[in-house]
Design a protein around this nucleic acid. Structure first.
Lengths: 218, 218
DNA sequence: ACCTGAACACCGTTCAAGT
DNA sequence: ACCTGAACACCGTTCAAGT
């Protein structure tokens, strides 16, 4: 029915910017200053155009963010996974965590529309499948995946927030609170005192993951 | 030295609005429409004043949110905790989760400056202390607390995002993705298909928590 | 002491017009 | 087809002035 069009008959004004250019610029902006710094106006300046020209290449800001996400997900390496299902589960979860950690801004978008994009499903697929191979029913495997996802997303989000806080020089609310803990009502925290900051700065993602997996599998 | 002042000698223009009124109005706004709907202008309208009058009662918007948080935390019940340390740990974590779940908006603020306020430390205190009583070193107890905190915050944040998504009527990106999964590359997810939504809607917080605790404790 | 109005420096997006 | 400018309906916050 529809005959193939060898060359689209381009009519009208020739484009000055392309969707790819817009996306590339958006990626630059977001990598440098976080999602918060990505505004249509700033992006327009970056590509040397006007805010409204952008709307000819993306529907709106939300679509722009989703495209950015797809793009990032598509570029992710898919590590070879071990045969042993339990190891496969842990390895896939670690890879998922690395994918998120490597790109702080994704999280802010992620939470708005969970489970990144098609490419992100690879992690879910492998984790659920490995959990089934470990002996869980499909239902419990999905629940296990969710627990791991909560743990992973929580870690990423909270660490990202921590970094943002550290970037501001002024002492945070939390530091002030920890500086004068009441030994009467909070003896344990008071005894930990200054070590809290260093202890919580340590990367214990893997440790916690393994504990979680230990408890989740039969 | 300083003599007690029985009655502050109030001079100048009498106040039309108080800090308490501002806070109460902010709480109303935020409970109804989330943190996103709390703007200084909207809040001013709510108390029947101008945006700038607010700055006479709170330093800025951030302080306003922190005050709101303190306020909420101060009103939380502190459930009696069981003697057995392991049960105490689980009970405290569940109480922490309930406190957050009862008040969706806190999370948005929380992430910005983790560990709610003084009142929120009660949970940390009990969880860390119970973990030590279970035989962990203080260091590992803090790490265990962090894992639980990641898991808990992640669950709350992701569920809240899910509810926000469900509130918009239009089908989400994620639904579209799940509608046509590739059976070749994602066989496991494809086989779960439509059940994904109902499975992930189930509340499995306690289940995951117990698994995590199981794996964390010696 | 407390409040107001005007103003500054921002947002995302729509609409009508230009090339 | 692609881009522009002006405009709308918002933000948080500062500053100088009023009572």
């Amino acid at each position: 029915m529809a005959q193939s069009v060898p060359q689209r008959p381009r009519v009208g004004r020739p484009p000055r910017i392309s969707r790819e250019e817009v996306l590339a610029a958006a990626r630059r902006v977001v990598e440098e200053g976080g999602v918060g710094s990505l505004t249509m106006r700033r992006l327009a300046a970056e590509v040397g155009s006007t805010p409204m020209a952008l709307y000819h290449h993306v529907k709106d800001k939300e679509e722009l963010l989703l495209l950015l996400l797809d793009d990032y997900a598509a570029g992710l390496a898919r590590p070879a996974l071990p045969e042993d299902p339990r190891e496969r589960l842990v390895t896939a979860a670690l890879a998922m965590h690395d994918a998120l950690a490597g790109c702080a801004w994704v999280v802010e978008v992620l939470v708005a529309d969970d489970l990144m994009s098609d490419a992100g499903l690879w992690y879910a697929e492998n984790i659920v499948d490995a959990a089934v191979a470990c002996g869980l029913t499909p239902e419990r495997a999905v629940h296990a995946y969710r627990s791991i996802w909560y743990y992973t997303a929580g870690e990423i989000i909270i660490r990202a927030a921590g970094r943002r806080r550290a970037a501001d020089d002024r002492p945070t609310h939390r530091e002030r609170v920890f500086a004068d803990l009441d030994e009467e009502t909070l003896p344990r925290l008071a005894s930990i005192g200054g070590r809290w900051a260093t202890l919580t700065a340590q990367d214990t993602y893997r440790q916690g993951l393994e504990a979680l997996v230990e408890g989740l599998l039969p």
